[in-house]
Amino acid sequence: MDFISILSIFVLACFVGYYVVWSVTPALHTPLMAVTNAISSVIIVGALIAAAASSGATGSGVAKWLGLGAVVLASVNIFGGFAVTQRMLAMYRKKEKRS
């Protein structure tokens, strides 16, 4: 993909983000932060590539260990972020059953 196509995706995604986030109810702003935290850990994709590719001919051992370290950090965030969001959202749902 060339730079301009990638930039186009990025700019359009910023607009999508703008409208989607304004529609989030203020009561759910904390879960919003938790879930955005979890999804920004999609950076694990880069970490996985670094961790897997290092045995290549030009591979550098340091790059591999950096990759593995990043996989651990991003995983903490992914699992922790989604789990804590789920926990918070479940508390909001309970109310609906009660009332």
């Binding site: 904390t30 932060m33 938790a34 935290n37 979890a38 920004s40 850990s41 950076i43 694990i44 880069g46 970490a47 590539i49 670094a50 590719a53 290092s54 290549g56 030009t58 591979g59 550098s60 340091v62 790059a63 591999k64 950096l66 990759g67 370290g69 990043a70 950090l73 991003a74 903490v76 965030n77 922790g80 972020g81 804590v84």
Partner: peptide
């Protein structure tokens, strides 16, 4: 907790960028 999670994303980004710098062919 959210602040701590943010720091992890930041550190992971640094690690990935460093790995990409050290082993650019893989990327």
């Amino acid at each position: 907790l959210v602040a701590a999670f943010h720091s992890l994303v930041g550190l992971a980004a640094v690690a990935v960028a460093c790995a990409a710098f050290l082993n650019p062919v893989a990327f």
